[in-house]
Structures are given as structure tokens and as C-alpha cells.
Design a protein around this nucleic acid. Sequence first.
DNA 1: TATGATAATGCAACCGCTTGCATAAATTAT
DNA 2: ATAATTTATGCAAGCGGTTGCATTATCATA
Lengths: 330, 330
Amino acid sequence: MAVTISDVARLAGVNSSTVSRVINGKATITQETKDRVYAAMKELDFHPNALARSLASGLCGAIGVVVDARDAEAFSNFFFSRSLFAIEQVAQEKGYQVIIANGAQSKGRTIENLMKERKVDGLILPPTTVSPSLMETIGDFPYVVLGTPDSLRGVTCWVDNNNEQGADLAVHHLQEQGYEHIAYLGGNQKRGFTIRRVRGYRKANIGDELVIPTDGTADSAYFAVGEILKKEDHPDAFVCNDNMAAFGLLKACKKLNIQVPSELGIVAFDNYPLAEYTDPPLTIVDIDTGMLGDQTAQLLFRRIDKRSSNQQIMLSTNLIIRKSSERTAK
Amino acid sequence: MAVTISDVARLAGVNSSTVSRVINGKATITQETKDRVYAAMKELDFHPNALARSLASGLCGAIGVVVDARDAEAFSNFFFSRSLFAIEQVAQEKGYQVIIANGAQSKGRTIENLMKERKVDGLILPPTTVSPSLMETIGDFPYVVLGTPDSLRGVTCWVDNNNEQGADLAVHHLQEQGYEHIAYLGGNQKRGFTIRRVRGYRKANIGDELVIPTDGTADSAYFAVGEILKKEDHPDAFVCNDNMAAFGLLKACKKLNIQVPSELGIVAFDNYPLAEYTDPPLTIVDIDTGMLGDQTAQLLFRRIDKRSSNQQIMLSTNLIIRKSSERTAK
DNA sequence: TATGATAATGCAACCGCTTGCATAAATTAT
DNA sequence: ATAATTTATGCAAGCGGTTGCATTATCATA
């Protein structure tokens, strides 16, 4: 059987409540007593039972990170896993555990259980899972949405990168480089972040407007631009919603013998590790996923500690300029 | 305050132990009583407190997945996150929570805490964290290493893909395609899985031997092969330890105007989403990361339930043949 | 109908820790 | 020296369940 607080108390010749106070350090205890308790703890190799502590104290010492992934691909999406790294780091500093749970199959049950069965003190949610009804069951339980929810109804707290500003950045950069007909390639036009990126593109773009959706694969981008690029007056630049779209586009350009960047410029969202190894390397609207995770976790802990009300945090994106948009180098 | 089991009991007109039995379903209870209890539970929107259950039952209902990542890059490595998806799925089926923890900074303390503070019932560990001393503190606590430990001393339970067989597969395929001087590119020669892949390469390779380490970046591969490819008698095929090495190699070939696959064949480990979008698409030794995660979790649960002794499971890899090794198409 | 076996439920201790309140010890003020 | 404070520790009641044992209700058997 495991060593308990009373074993330690007995050995140190004190009451178990004293041991508890020593552990938690929030009471005045004589140095001498402390020393005896510490010695006893070390001698018995005592580790407090986290479950019992949580039960007694009413805090579970864990936060839940919910993912909404139907397959391994979505799960391993790099946006998520990078943010997760930062989240875990913040949690570790606070002495909290991180529980991950895939909410894809369960229609909100996952979230409800985590909350109501007292498994976590707070939740980080993906934009796709929040709905008015979910927000109702969540009530004033601490949560932060990582990303902007598709529907804002009832949702009051999130952290996101500024997609609109990112698209603006991309378009302006291409315009500065002398590109004139800028199109937008990729993305599911029902997803909030795509909508906002397209909105940014529309606002910044002064030429003709062209938005080409894809299903997220390089192939679909490849086929989608195939016909368009054959026309005489095809766009001379693309803002790509993701790296896969850019890859499909590059492939199509290669096939049709369109030179990048001299004849066609490309800027894509998200700095995948491989974006700088394409030919030519891709100019990127970079999202600081680390910062995103960090801010999300920080905000969540503020809410858990009741040190913060609901708020929305928006992080700026920034441009990593590479060859794919360097028309001036022509 | 939350609804407790006694609230339910009171409303249903039974003792709280009866409610407990109804919840856990492991006792004979009259249908009529059950109905009353369920009705009361529903009326009060009762959710059992997981902490209290765990404390009383002695099981925490969570498994820990330890990662060893110094930075977000390592954390988001695709091998890990894909396996994680499968692990979470198995856990969810068993009603278990998945706790992830980065053990990089803490020298085994993370693992020890998860275990001794009773936060998890079992652990999935990365090969890099296991050491004889750690195995000693782990004792007979249920664990499974995901990957083959670098040092086998004291380690008794792991699941891995068969790296040696994978390299064998790659070399044979290249030989069949008519390539004769096959080199091995990439990897840290101190890491177990690289060593085993190289061993497989050495066994299968009948021509000259050449192993070129890299630091995992495409750049280091690019520079490493630069000189080698300039020589007259350079290898006519490469087995790459990872996708990044293959990217660097492709870039070097392009620069030196070496045609792939007609003049030089490439097979790389790991099927990155982008491997089929390179020019030419890469032939891959594919690792079924989903199966790996699944088997690891299954084995862990068998150990938790004491239905299995320590064992080592090896999963076969298989080849995805694409253009980069199709010499016959010359 | 009495009797033993079996099924259904209640009782209460316990899981290991926290914490409000009471008490005892130490310190300071008068 | 004694009273008034302040500080350090003990006591015991929870936290919300689970579970072995005791008890009662139900049923089959003779």
C-alpha cells in the first residue's frame, strides 16, 4: 500500500493536518516542525495522492484540451499540436495536468463529461465544437476557444490570430511586388477562419476578385487552378489558404510552364516545415502557434483563478518573405 | 453545489450505496429500483464526481502519454501526434482519460510524479526517457514504450515498427529497380531507430556502403550530399532516414542537374502528407502510426488489467511506391 | 407452512487529504 | 506577574463516492 500523510505524520510525531499544511505551505509552521516533516517525507518517499487532494480541495488540477478530429490527419494538424506544446508548458508551470480528448464523435458529450464529472478545472475548445446549446451547458465554467468560433452566438471568450489582417498583409505584399490580379485559393468557405481571410483579401484587393475553394488537398487545388491558368488573362498572383493549396498550385504552374515568381506570385498561410523547401520557397503568412497556445492557456488560468472576465484576444500574423513572391527579382 | 449521490438516493428513496451499484452495474438490483434511480439521476442531472470515484475505487481512469520534446517542432512531430490520435481513441473506448506531459525538462520527475501521485494508471513512454534508473523507479507499474528504447537494459515492454525490415524493404526495392550503389542518408547515428535502420541497410545492401548522417534538417542533407554527388562514381540511389533528408537530396539533385529517378533513385522513411507532392513524388517506407498507437494503448490496457505480461511488439512497415524510385520508367 | 437458499438493499467504514474551529504554546503588552 | 495577543498545532468533520458485511425480502423446496 502507498505511503499516506498519516504515515508521515506518525513518523514526524505530528498530526496529519500539520503535514498537510507543510505540504501546501499556507500556514505558519515552525521551521523545526517543517524539517521533521520533510525528513519523514523523504525517508518514506512520500508522494501525496493527487486524487485525494483534489477531492478535498475541490480543484482537480487539470485542464482539458478538446480536439475535433475525425481522423489522424486532422488530429496531427500542425496548428493544433504546436499550440498544444505551449499549452502544456504553461500548465506544467502552474502544476496542472493537460487532458486531451477528441470530441469529434460525441456531440458535446465529451465536453460535458469533462466538466460535470469534475475531471478538469477549465477547457480549451476548438471553434468547431462551440454552439449556443453547448455554451448554455457550459455556463460560467472557465473555457477559452482556440480560434474564432464560426458562430459567435453566446460565445464570449477566445484567442485567435488575426486572419483578416493576415490576408491583408499577403495582398499588400503582392501588390507592392507589382502583381495586379490577385486571386484567393483554397479553404472551405464555411469555416470561419477561411471566411475571415477571404474578407481580408476582399478588402485589400483592388483588382478583380476571384475566390477558388478547395477541399484542403493539394490535388483539389491542382485541378481547381488547371483551367483557370490556361486562360490568357489568368491571375498573376495567389493568396493560398494553406500550404497544400500552394503545393497544388506550384505543381500546376510547373506543368503549364508558368514561372514562379516572375510570372505568378504566391503567398500562403501557415509556415509548414517544408514551405521553405519547395521550388521556389514559399512566402508565408506566419501564425505564431506557440504564442497562440501560450495566450490561450494564460487566459484560461486567469479565468480559473477568477482574475479575468471573458475576453477576446487577437494576435497579429507576420510575413515571412521568400522567393515565391519576389517579382522584383525578375 | 453539485448534485451528489446522496441527493439522488434521497429522491429515489434508496440508500446511496444502491445508487452506486446502479451506476456501476455490478450487483443485482431490481428493475424497478433501477428505474427509480435512473429517473432521479436524470431529474437532478447527476454526474458522478470522477475524483471521488477514483479515490474510493483506487483506479484513476487515466493514462499518461509522456513526450520528450524540447521545442514545438519536436512536439508536433507527426509520428507522435498521429499515434496520439489512436491512443486517445482506444482510451476513450475504455472510458479512460489521456494526460499528456512533456518530460523534456524534468529528468524523469514528470514520470515519477504521474505515477506516484496516482494521476494515471499506466504510462506510454518515449524511447528517449527510459533509463535503467527510471525502470527501477517504475517497478511493475504498467508502462509501454512507444518505439524501441535506445538502451534495452531493464526495459521489458515496447511496441515499435520494424525499422530493420523497413530498410531491408527499401534496399531490395532499389536493387530490383536496377540501382547498384545505394547509400544511406540522414539521421542521428546515436538514436536507436536510426541504428536499426542502418543495420537493415547494411544487411541488405550488396554494393559499397555509405552512411551519411544529418541533423534532421533538409539543409544539412543538402550540404552533406553536395560534395558526394559531384564525384563521378557517386551513389545511384539513397535510402533516406526521413523526409527532410529526401528534400535536401532532391534540392541538391536539381541543382546539379541529376535526374530523379532515371539517374538516381530515392526511398525515404515516413509518409509525410507532402511526400507525394514533391517532384518527383517520393517512394516511402510507410509506418502505420495509427496501428502503432493502437497496439501500444491496447497493450498498456492489458497490462493495467493484468491480462498481459511484458512483451515486445514489432509492426511491419510497407512500401508506397512512387516516382522517385522508378528507374524502369526511364 | 416452515426452512433454507438466494436476491436485493442498507449500514458504516474507508479512500487520503483539506480546513474551520478549538486549544495549547509562545510572545508581547500592561 | 498576569492579561491580551499572536502563533503553532491538534481535532474531527467533511470531500463524494465504493464495498464488505449484515440484514431483510423473496423465492423455491420439502
